[in-house]
Simulated assay, not measured.
Amino acid sequence: MTDFSLPDFDLDAFVRATLAEDLGERGDITSLATIPADARFGGVMDSRDAITVAGLPIAEAFFRALDPAMDIEILVGEGEQVAAGSDLMRLSGNARAMLTAERSALNTVQHLSGIATMTRQYVDALAGTDATLLDTRKTIPGLRVLEKYATRTGGAQNHRMGLWDAAMIKDNHVAVAGSVEEAVRRAVAAGITSIIVEVDRVEQVEPALNAGATHLLLDNMTLDQLRESVRLVRGRVPTEASGGVRLDTIGEIGATGVTYVSVGRLTQSAPAADIGLDFALV
């Protein structure tokens, strides 16, 4: 078994729950009816597109959960960029186990590799600037740890993992508190040390800083507004451009001098990678 672990993620529990969802109470009735119990398959997982690979050790865990003795060889590393037609994994073992685990394994690798591939495209488009790509909390419920693993694998840096690891003061918080300054003051008074403040106008920058913001999220600003905000901040706190960022605009956004550019579509809209698995009797 490939040595693979993620903080705060129980791989065995994830595999059990995913397989249970697919198997129900009756199991893989098609394979049970048509495949002899002792039949063996050999298989190759390959990519039909050029991709950045993510999730192969998780796919391995699905197959081993149903056939612990399965012979599995992972052929490429996590985060490796491969050409279309590249073999990713070779397998040999119990045919029923392979067929039963196939969809869960492929769904996971396709989804995570799709995220890693899109992330790498955005990272490459930022090349030549000093900005770092961030992901967001726009993740599928229950899959945040895996999806943020995929963005890291593609070259991004994780932003907040949840609501617990930093305060993020947005317009609704400001509306209730009465002002940016009061919202930040309340966060400071609560003992929060990491306070991100969303601003969408240049004139909000200085009040947010004076109140104690430790990070400014510059929301949906024009390039000129971003440059002016960076000039006003003068490196006192990190700055983050966010909102409406596209692959064809991220380079010029990064060139404004912001510290970070965050992109929700990395986890929200990445298409699944085209990855297949072909079996043959052995």
Results as ranks from 00 to 15, higher is better:
Asp8Val: 00
Phe9Met: 02
Thr18Ala: 09
Glu21Asp: 02
Asp22Phe: 03
Arg26Val: 12
Gly27Asp: 13
Ile29His: 10
Ser31Gly: 13
Ala39Met: 12
Arg40Ile: 13
Gly42Asn: 12
Gly42Asp: 14
Met45Ile: 10
Ser47Gly: 07
Ile51Gly: 05
Gly55Leu: 04
Glu60Leu: 00
Phe62Asp: 02
Phe63Gln: 05
Pro68Val: 05
Ala69Thr: 15
Asp71Cys: 11
Glu73Met: 14
Leu75Asp: 04
Leu75Cys: 07
Glu78Asn: 02
Gly79Ser: 05
Gly79Asn: 04
Ala83His: 14
Ser86Pro: 13
Met89Asp: 11
Gly93Ile: 02
Gly93Met: 02
Asn94Ser: 15
Ala97Pro: 14
Ala97Gly: 08
Met98Val: 09
Met98Trp: 10
Leu99Asn: 04
Thr108Ser: 01
Gln110Asp: 02
Met118His: 11
Asp124Arg: 07
Ala131His: 15
Thr132Leu: 12
Leu134Met: 14
Asp135Trp: 00
Lys138Asp: 05
Val145Leu: 00
Leu146Val: 03
Thr151His: 01
Gln157Ser: 12
Asn158Glu: 00
Met161Pro: 00
Trp164Ser: 00
Val174Gly: 07
Val180Ala: 10
Ala189Arg: 10
Gly191Met: 04
Ile192Ala: 03
Ile192Gln: 05
Ile192Trp: 01
Glu203Cys: 05
Glu203Val: 06
Glu203Pro: 02
Glu206Gln: 13
Ala208Ser: 07
Thr214Lys: 01
His215Gln: 11
Leu218Pro: 12
Leu218Val: 08
Glu228Tyr: 10
Leu232Thr: 10
Ile250Phe: 00
Gly251Arg: 15
Glu252Tyr: 08
Gly257His: 12
Ser262Phe: 03
Val263Glu: 01
Val263Asn: 01
Asp274Phe: 05
Asp278Met: 11
Val282Cys: 12
